[in-house]
Design a protein around this nucleic acid. Sequence first.
RNA 1: GGAUCCUUAGCUCAGUUGGCUAGAGCGUACGAUUCACAUUCGUAAGGUCAGAGGUUCAAGCCCUCUAGGAUCCACCA
Length: 867
Amino acid sequence: MKFTSAYEPGEFEPDIYAAWEAADEFLPGGSVEASKGVYAEESPSTYSIVMPPPNANGNLHIGHGLTIATEDSLIRYHRLKGDFTWYIPGADHAGFETWVVYERVLEAQKHTRFEYSREELYAQVWDFVQEQRGNMELQVRALGASCSWKDLTFTLDENVVRRVYDTFQKMWNDGMIYRGEKLVNYCTKHQTAFADIEVEHEEEKGKLWDIAYPYDGGEIVVSTTRPETLFGDTAVAVNPEDKRYKDLIGKTVRLPLTDRNIPVIADEHADPEYGTGAVKITPAHDNDDFEVGERHNLPRIQVISFEGKMLPNCGPEYEGLTTKDCRKKVLKDLKEANLLRGERDIVHSVAHCYKCGTVIEPMLKEQWFIDVKKLAKTAIEHLEADEIKFYPSSKKQVLINYLKGLKDWNISRQIPWGIAIPMFKKVDGDEWIFDARTNLSEIEIGGERYIRDEDTFDTWFSSSHWPIVCTNWEEGAPNPYYPLNVMETGADILFAWVARMIMMGLYVTGEVPFREVYLHGLVLDAHGQKMSKSKGNVINPMELVSKYGSDAFRLGILRGRSAGMNQAFSEQSVVSGRNLCNKLWNISRFIQEMVDQSGGVKDPLEYTSDNMGEDWILREINEAKWQVESQMEHYRFSEAVETLHSLIWDKYADWFLESQKLYKNSSLLQNTLEAILKMLHPFAPFVTEAIWQNLSWTEGMLISAKWPSDFKYDPMSAEEFERLMDIVSHTRSTLQGLSEAYKGISSSDTNMLYGDDSIVDDNSLLIQYLCRVKAVISTEGEPRGLRLAIANSEIYLDVSEDAVAAYADLLEKRIMKIGRELDALNMRMMNPNYVDKAPAELVKETQDAIAEKQGLIERLKTERAAI
RNA sequence: GGAUCCUUAGCUCAGUUGGCUAGAGCGUACGAUUCACAUUCGUAAGGUCAGAGGUUCAAGCCCUCUAGGAUCCACCA
């Protein structure tokens, strides 16, 4: 006997995973060749998913847990269905994320990045990541991901870099890449630029100061939240419609604390309603001002350094101050100069570095940009042609709207950890050339020396190639795994990643990179709060896995989750998953015992005609299977889990197995259990495989078994069993009611009497067992006790008249309830429009229901009359 | 400011093209107990489907408005 009384996940999970992996079960069709497009059979159906690569040096968080549970259940389902499934794992160098971590490591060692060359740093981080990397991969395994490890792609792998360079070169040749001096979102702590999407805006309390800029015969008062940037002012703008300032347009005013004069210009940007209606223009340190500057050809004066300190051009008193200190000093000096006119509290949103929270400084910097017009336009066309189906569907339009307003994409990052930008600048001159030899910092072509750009690519630029590189897509070569069947990822990176994969997929391959997109929402804590370290409500998936098992975690996290929604998650749902695993384990243990009693070998499916429960469970399994198929098709994981939970627990165990305690049809038990194991396998791979391996008659591995085919059964017989279930439920309920109403009634002391009823007659033993009554006896024409209100039957509980009397109140309540239901139905039928316009089928159903309820009430009234 | 989504049992959520007598898990109450499982079994209570209108024979579902919440985008001198 290999079945212990409780399932212990830890005893089985590591060995089972190792066995799958050793048997190459994770490869498409189970062979290396198939992943390369070489098949034994003619064009098999394929199914591919790429894993959004977890950070190579990190630990998995709850979001990864959801990702893997979702993707792996799809993969396993399709594998059982016979598809050549390819689930390609990845590891992300996570450019900036990892860099932040590594900078802390350096800091701890009392070093800084500025002591090393770019190459040295790259090599150091590479080693650091390789050391850490195994951790993440072990955790992905612990979650049961049936991904093809032989195809693991690291985002800095050679083939990735090659593909990224190819694309970049193509874009360069197509004139889509340009170098521009623009304002970038700059973090002065990390000393790198960010894409707009990487910047977090937060509402903050701030102050709006009014500062007087004097001129001969007066002053103009400007409003600003950033007085320290006044050294970079190159104009004051007023709205052209603003009568207050009309006469000042074109005049010059004195810039306070300096000896510079700047012009007053007219620009729509100035909002007459806001502040004083006059605004200082600092093109080098403000996004809007930059645009105003472009419109009016204003000089751009950078006054803040990349370290976040004031530059010498601010004057010796201010040079070297941080922006914060400088603001204080400027305000103090303005006050002393009697130029500060006002100060008020405001709430405004301020951009912060999403990693360290430092205020983002818009800075002038030469960067590489991608002109996204064509990319976005093509993507929109394909989206509008419905080439990609979205779950939830609303996200498609959200994405289109985003693409319509997309600005040019800054792909330069000033961190060493990433793919080097393959651009070199002529030493003597301004010319830039493309060259893939980024291992060299300097190259020579035709006697000219070129120096490589120090920057690296934005990670999203390389990540946008993910479906292409993971499936080994090559121009002109057929590839059954591209486009992917589905891209499953978090709704929060719809813009950052999904949008860019679509643009890049179309640009490189001419095809959309995936046919469907399933987006999951955030996993919130049990109270619907976002998980965060500072709140201390972070749930570690690995802790849950070690406590309850991988399957329990997977079942728990998929429960109550639907596409695109941020939803709560609690340990409780994992407990419920664990219980289901244990239930299935014990079902199997019990079946194995029964099979052992009848020889322990595998029998072909047989079913006997005298047990309706067998027909019924075969029907229920068929129906559950069809439901799960449809639910998987529509990414309704939560419902699929519920369907299976209900099948296994409420139907298979509570009714079928209970009835089998009397009938023991060994071959049927075997065949139905196998079907159930297969159906639950996508969600709970370990326990189902563990059972499969423990059962005496099964062969091979469950992971690569075939999805069950339909069972044949007798539908009449299955329906009859439902009647039996009705009788049993009703009896139990009535007995419970009786025992609560009248002390001394217990089911085991009560006899069930029946009149002319073939179902009871044929199944008296089963009914006796399921109802736990003393005996089921024919009335022999002498009914007594309480008659049960069950359609088409004559069944009594043999209890005293006093007990029946005590039960009267409950009975009355039930009659009332059914009466109300009957009234509602009658109302419906009395409406001529309903009878006219509703489908005939429905009207018939209503009529039947009325007849049934009338009959029921009659019988209940008889019960009452008998009291 | 713009957009999207959400509001259903005590809690967390399902509810597909309108047909519902609104479901599940957990929790609660009552009862059971050698015989697969206490990670168990049985029974029950619990809902004006956020509010107000509208369309329809019929609305949790479709439309309009209102209130509350979440997220994203843009902007805020």
